[in-house]
Design a protein around this nucleic acid. Structure first.
Lengths: 210, 210, 210, 210
DNA sequence: GATGAATGAGTCTTCATTCAT
DNA sequence: AATGAATGAAGACTCATTCAT
């Protein structure tokens, strides 16, 4: 059994991570034992440790991989030179998330919630997750700027603040989808559109109460 | 031995739960050992088991208690006969969450994220958490209805959909606060207001792409 | 089961160490598994770890304890105000070692060899063992000085050098006892006496070749 | 595949044993893993098993080889037809041991201590080591006989007993060198000479106390 | 002959829980 | 009611050895 090819090696790593996520999603990250992952990956104990130094490293790799996959899906929509208007934009983002969810029995919403939680007690994971979210927020601020120029959004509001609000929207949809059942992309888009589409001209009074 | 008074008993239970949350927030729910909780509570192992049958029950009680506390804070705002307008409303809700965060070194945002994650692999917790969120969503729908009547929100949109969007907002603010740093209630309120305060009259085109 | 008394605690520690030495002597220090020690001590795994943080610590404690016991036996002979003459002195030392050997089925010679070996790859053990030996050597040098004054030994030789030679003797007797079978104290004493009791007057030629 | 030449085979075996000793001296025999040896020997796992059936066999071979090497160095001195007088003899023996120590970063003293310890829990090793020591002892007895005839040693003492004493000396010097720092051959020789060179005529009283 | 990935029994250690006091 | 020492099953990880290539 001579040296394994690099792609074969990567395939093994993926095989292990996929098994890990199946277990994590079922039982939670920390409640999952290495033995479960090993059995799910249909490997021997030693083999797994050949690819990951320990549980810690495996968890980190699992989270990293998943977050990257997600980013790969969202970035094209977020970074589009000329972003879609708010409604279709929301539809595109939530569709992307929803579509990925179905792929291999792994609910992305569930996984993301676990990653967030893990980040609360693991500095390395937190750095990772926060990095991704910050990128998303910046992309949203950029989109808001453009939308304001295009007249989709009122110019009065600070783009940074609107960006935070929009990110909240998307994050919150993930939470709701995981806990109360999937929200359809149409609903998400309609929700945003419904909020934005206000007819009154002067809304300064909205914040009147201090 | 004579039974201790019921209030004494409740005080002990609270003491244990408080210790538990301090540990959970630090290390994560499942990475926390009973021994840690026992030491943090400054009790003996036996004593803890006198009040909770096991770790499982303790975790459930800890989550239940915290969710209830949160509900106690939010319900007055949510169920107000005549709800505040969207901006002040948002300010009130996020202020309530933020204020609680400061109280005893326990970051509510962190705790909530852990509860959500736990819900993904624990049916009982999920039922609990989902129940609370559903209540919030219903309350928001009710508020939306009123806002629409009062002219704060466009009447075209479905209240249910707007309710989901608003809940997303609040949930997402919690996520961002936990991962990217606290968001001030003013920002949250300004974000909602900024989205709503659109000057254009006809926004039907927002969802034009279909 | 309230707090255990300090002496009870010490008894448990001794019980564990005794079991450990029985195993070590049988199979070697590192070839002994914790499980063996646990079984030999007739305790549960957890109990042992209640008294020693880990295998490392247990090994160190085992070595430390044994070396101390040995020192307790030898010091009275070594530090006697007016030391016995070389022959009886040797007899006393080797008798003390031999007598201890019989006590509880544990061959002290075997144990010491294992300690020495362990010292070669464990800095902490080495410091410990070297410290003891250095003490012994110093005590021997002191005895040599007295013997020279009393005419038991030629005054020409450096006491430090003779001290090293004598320590070698005792250490070597331990080695031989462990590997070739016990050497009787009488033999050890006779060996030393036989070397010393030389009749010729001028022995300078002994080191003639240089 | 064609068999490789016998000398090539022997070279491989030596390469493995040398690597093994470097590891053993560093971490102890049993604390050394096959993987370490394999890496140190710069071979593959399979290759090592081509030359030694298992760890056990490798350890035994390593010990055997080293002991033989040592014997090869000492035998010419010990078996000399007309042995050197005690002082020079001691100098020659200890020099031989010391010189070997320097050769390749491997401290012979360390290795011997490990072999002795290993012998305590491994019958095969014990037989091996004891065999060598017995040979040395016999050679020493023979030398003592000659020395007595030549007047270097008192004739009263039993050669067998003196032989044991002398072997102790040499073994003990090894122990001290390993634990307290190298002892120079000059010191060793001076130590022996210093003991022997006693001027008094009647030393019977040395064992007077009984 | 040689490789090194894979195996899986075995190791050390932790930890939820119990129970004698 | 309260204690905390004890339990032992389960966990993470290692490592001597094998075997397909």
């Amino acid at each position: 059994m001579p040296k394994i090819s690099e792609e074969k090696r990567q395939a093994r790593r993926d095989q292990i991570l996929a098994a890990a996520w199946r277990c994590f999603a079922r039982n939670g990250i920390h409640a999952t034992s290495m033995e479960e992952i090993i059995r799910e990956a249909d490997l021997s104990a030693g083999a797994v440790y050949l690819y990951y130094k320990g549980k810690e490293e495996l968890i980190l790799a699992a989270i990293e991989t998943y977050m990257s996959k997600l980013r790969g899906m969202l970035l094209p929509i977020l970074m589009k030179e000329d972003p879609l208007p708010p409604g279709p934009f929301t539809f595109a983002i939530t569709s992307a998330i929803a579509s990925h969810t179905q792929q291999r029995g792994l609910d992305l919403n569930v996984i993301i919630l676990m990653c967030w939680s893990e980040a609360q007690s693991n500095a390395e994971v937190k750095k990772l997750v926060a990095g991704f979210q910050l990128k998303y927020r910046e992309a949203l601020v950029r989109a808001v700027n453009i939308w304001q120029k295009q007249g989709h959004l009122a110019k009065a509001a600070q783009p940074e603040v609107i960006g935070k609000a929009l990110l909240s929207f998307f994050l919150g949809f993930i939470v709701q989808s995981a806990l109360l059942g999937k929200i359809k992309p149409e609903e998400a888009a309609a929700g945003i559109a419904g909020l934005i589409s206000h007819t009154k001209t002067h809304n300064n009074h909205l914040m009147s109460r201090k």
